[in-house]
Design a protein around this nucleic acid. Structure first.
Length: 679
RNA sequence: GCCGGUGUGGCGCAGUUGGUAGCGCAGACGACUUGUAAUCGUCAGGUCGUGGGUUCGAUUCCCACCGCCGGCUCCA
């Protein structure tokens, strides 16, 4: 082509290229390293293939494999290769969609004859994928009119459904080619080799040879379009990276997460278990886990008292009428345990929620505006019939205890009350060592909500402005609210960067009306109060699990079930060890003496495995000098000859500060962080 | 609820043409009396998740159910 084009680069410079130059040629012109790393390009904000011609005057950046965008391209292209491999191995298979997800990708299939993938198939598919990669097939883009697309995928019902959706104007993220406004809809495809073409928006790497640092992870069933009523497809999950090292690092991170798994730690540290005899999703807490729970709950109670909450209690079962009034039976009957019939036909339900009980406490007598805001708190145990496939450790259970509170206030008080609540919540989470947050605002669930549009709008706006006042990042979650009101949820980031939905604060105009709640105002008229639902831990069980994983089992000293263990070197030091323990427990420190007939080394090892914050070894020198040998958790260097009184003072200080031996400590600098220094 | 995987002493694991189970750790007991990540020995402990079926005989093959793991759907 004749002439030249000029493009602007991300650093602001411009570069002239021959007319018709592609993004790949631009990358080559800039440098061989960039050309090698390039997987796609971004032209005026739109991602395109490297083979795309660059329009004159456009702004272009080259997308490299080691960027988030680049990895997405690799993953998407690897997903195509997966589909190609499956079609090679199962002629006649139908392929549906294969999007990029966090750290990887998946692809959904329907196999001929309703066949299912099993784990052995993964290895075969992976081998075929490596063949395709070795063949270094090109990804060649084509654009088609709708009818042409339908013909092309005549025997692929899922692809046809997607194309029909594009025609109908539904934005199909994965297949619609970027078309200008008013342009007739088109779809784009990528052709790899005779026999394999996939519907796709792109961009893709230039050829399959650019891929290879991937692994297929697992198979799963998944409903077409995420709809439980539609057919279930066979999904394969995979991960792909820019290099073998990045892939290995990712697999290593998965192992790290597995190491922290609360279910594993719960068993190892003797905290809780799930006896099969009791039933799925119904945990029991052992003495050590019970101690941790008690500490969490006691601290929470103390803070709630200080923040003006009152404590209430309610029973575990109730007549059906209560949940008919609240509306829960309309929406969540499936999630409730079936009713039991008592007293000649009266139906009783196990309670799935605490709020109606608190409402009845409110209604037990007439309320004056002078009493508001009224804050009722309860560690309320609720039972929910979770579907069998969803129970998961302590995070998804069928019986749990919520740190549940309901605040009743006037409309005028609402904004301040919300703000105070949110501040309180963030402060308390911080005391448990969680201090990286963002907020999420969940709005009205369409088709599954009660109440007027106006109430919803007011409630949502009030929450939005409260969130804005906190100055934290706010993410919208459209349609994610409860049926009776919108909510703010606090999303917490843990030590390995995962986010967990933690506290929720819901604004509710509906339940007070349903229950005909009222208060007498200053005007001597009756008004309906506003209700705020909030749980801070969510459930004690789930919060326990998140903390355990956050700390990888190394709970801060104040929460550790056993804070100090004393090991006498020999029988001669038994009495001194006991006196050390007595002194410590006199200060409220949880301490045990281990004088088993094992070597000091064996007892040290055993103690270390329980993740006790401090192990004290006491021998002859210590008896004479009234000292202890301190083994701090996270360090493998013992600190000898620590004066006993100084150790006690330092531990008490650390408990008070909610510190950990890894970060603060009774003497000297901190040792290495947990998880290091041990083979 | 759906798809795939899985279930062997408290925990971690072995166990193939189907012939009634082994190891390590933990536990009990004994010896050793120990100064920083496993001292030695002895012993005990399992109706192989549960229930059916096939078979002379089932941990092993088949069916159903339960639990668990990974997803999907759901999550007041």
């Amino acid at each position: 082509m004749a002439g030249e084009v000029s493009v602007r680069l991300p650093d602001g410079s411009t570069r002239a290229l021959p007319g018709g130059a592609t993004a790949a040629e631009l990358a080559r012109a800039i440098g061989p390293r960039l050309a090698k790393a390039a997987v796609a390009a971004e032209v005026d904000g739109v991602e395109v293939d490297l083979a795309a011609e660059l329009p004159d005057g456009s702004t272009v950046s080259v997308v490299t494999a080691n960027s988030e965008e680049g990895r997405a391209v690799l993953r998407h292209s690897t997903a195509h290769v997966l589909a190609q491999a499956v079609l090679r191995l199962w002629p006649g298979a139908h392929y549906a969609i294969g999007p990029v997800i966090e750290d990887g990708f998946y692809y959904d299939f329907e196999l001929p004859g309703g066949a299912h993938f099993n784990d052995d198939d993964l290895a075969r598919i992976e081998a075929t994928m490596r063949d395709i990669i070795a063949e270094d097939q090109p990804f060649i883009r084509h654009e088609h009119a709708i009818e042409e697309g339908l013909d092309l995928f005549a025997d692929q019902p899922f692809k046809r459904e997607i194309i029909e959706a594009v025609r109908a104007g539904a934005a199909e993220v994965d297949a619609a080619a970027p078309a200008g406004p008013g342009a007739p809809p088109v779809v784009s495809t990528y052709w790899n080799s005779p026999g394999f073409t996939d519907l796709c928006r792109g961009p893709h790497v230039p050829s399959t040879g650019r891929l290879g640092h991937f692994a297929l992870m697992r198979v799963a069933g998944a409903y077409w379009r995420g709809d439980e009523k539609r057919q279930q497809l066979q999904r394969i999950y995979g991960t792909a990276w820019e290099s073998d090292k990045a892939l290995a690092d990712h697999l290593h991170r998965l192992e790290e997460a597995e190491r922290r798994d609360h279910r594993k730690l719960g068993a190892e540290l003797d905290l809780f278990s799930f006896p099969e005899e009791i039933g799925s999703g119904l945990p029991v807490f052992h003495p050590k886990g019970g101690t941790v729970r008690r500490i969490m709950e006691e601290y929470s109670r103390q803070r709630h008292v200080a923040a003006g909450y009152e404590f209430v209690n309610s029973p575990h079962i109730t007549k059906a009428e209560l949940f008919e009034t609240s509306g829960h039976l309309d929406w969540f009957a499936e999630g409730m345990y079936p009713p039991m019939e008592l007293d000649g036909g009266q139906q009783y339900y196990l309670k799935p929620m605490n709020c109606p009980f608190h409402i009845l406490i409110y209604k037990s007598r007439q309320r004056s505006y002078r009493e508001l805001p009224l804050r009722m708190f309860e560690f309320g145990t609720v039972y929910r019939y979770e579907k069998s496939g969803v129970v998961h450790g302590l995070t998804r259970v069928r019986g749990m205890t919520q740190d549940d509170a309901h605040l009743f206030c006037t409309r005028e008080q609402m904004a301040d009350e919300l703000h105070a609540t949110l501040t309180f919540v963030l402060d308390l989470l911080g005391d448990f060592g969680l201090d990286e947050f963002y907020l999420e605002l969940s709005t009205r669930p369409e088709g599954k909500a009660v109440g007027s549009d106006e109430d919803w709008a007011v409630a949502t706006e009030t929450l939005r402005s409260t969130a804005a006042r906190m100055g934290l990042e706010l993410v919208m979650d459209e349609g994610g609210g409860a049926f009776y009101g919108p909510k703010i949820s606090v999303q917490v980031k843990d030590a390995i960067g995962r986010t967990h939905q933690m506290s929720t604060i819901q604004l509710d105009f509906q339940e007070p009306q349903r229950f005909a709640m009222e208060y007498v105002g200053a005007d001597n008229a009756r008004h309906v109060p506003i209700m705020i639902h909030r749980a801070l831990f969510g459930s004690v069980e789930r919060f326990f699990a998140i903390l355990l994983e956050h700390y990888a089992g190394n709970l801060p000293t104040w929460m550790s079930p056993e804070q100090v263990r004393v090991l006498p070197v020999s029988e001669d030091h038994q009495a001194y060890a006991e006196s050390v323990a007595t002194l410590l427990s006199g200060h409220g420190i949880r301490v045990a003496v281990d004088s088993a007939d094992d070597s000091v080394g064996a007892r040290i090892r055993r103690s270390k495995l329980t993740k006790v914050p401090y192990i004290l070894v006491v021998g002859d020198d210590d008896v004479t000098a009234r000292t202890v040998g301190v083994n701090r958790r996270g360090s493998n260097r013992p600190e000898r000859d620590e004066p006993l009184d100084r150790f006690v003072a330092a531990v008490l200080e650390e408990v008070e500060a909610h510190g950990s031996p890894e970060s603060t400590g009774p003497s000297g600098p901190a040792g290495p962080p947990p998880g290091t220094g041990r083979a």
